[in-house]
């Protein structure tokens, strides 16, 4: 198969998966999906990338080390957990702000979503941290 075609196809597919993964994360609170599924899908975008173009390319595309993603994700989740504490609530208490977007349903953004984003980041980092070394290990 023409490697250029394959490469472009993969790139396209990977971008599509990435977008889909963010969507999955976003809608998770209301429909099936969520940070975990989203994170897995995002990770598979990079795995696909790696399968087609080699793990080194995937690492370049990722820009930051997977371990950094893991630490960031955990940090995000912890942050989400602690926001409520500032307000005097127990840890992990949900806090919401309502964004008045004209026309659409009122948009509610809250710490559970931030928490789920943390999950998302950890999952991406973990999967890549596992798969990429395996692919590199010859």
């Amino acid at each position: 198969m023409n490697s250029l075609v394959l490469r472009n196809m993969m790139r396209f597919l990977a971008s599509l998966l990435l977008v889909a993964s963010v969507f999955l994360l976003w809608r998770g609170h209301n429909e099936p999906g969520g940070g975990f599924a989203g994170g897995l899908m995002a990770a598979s975008a990079f795995v696909l990338h790696a399968l087609a173009l080699g793990p080194a390319g995937a690492r370049r595309a990722l820009r930051v080390p997977p371990l950094f993603l893991i630490a960031t994700g955990l940090g995000t989740a912890l942050l989400a957990a602690l926001i409520g504490v500032i307000a005097g609530d127990p840890i992990l208490t949900g806090h919401w702000v309502t964004l008045d977007t004209p026309g659409a349903e009122r948009l509610k953004v809250g710490t559970p979503l931030l928490f789920d984003t943390g999950v998302y980041l950890v999952v991406v980092g973990v999967v890549l941290n596992i798969i990429l070394p395996l692919m590199e290990d010859e």
Binding site: H29, F115, V126
Partner: peptide, 29 residues
């Protein structure tokens, strides 16, 4: 504020479980 009850349990009602779960993942990695 969530219509997916399972997800709400995961990120709100029982979010402590989920916190533990991602720690497990991180360590496994």
């Amino acid at each position: 504020f969530g219509r997916n009850v399972v997800n709400v349990i995961l990120v709100d009602f029982r979010s402590l479980d989920t916190l533990g779960e991602i720690i497990v993942l991180a360590v496994a990695a």
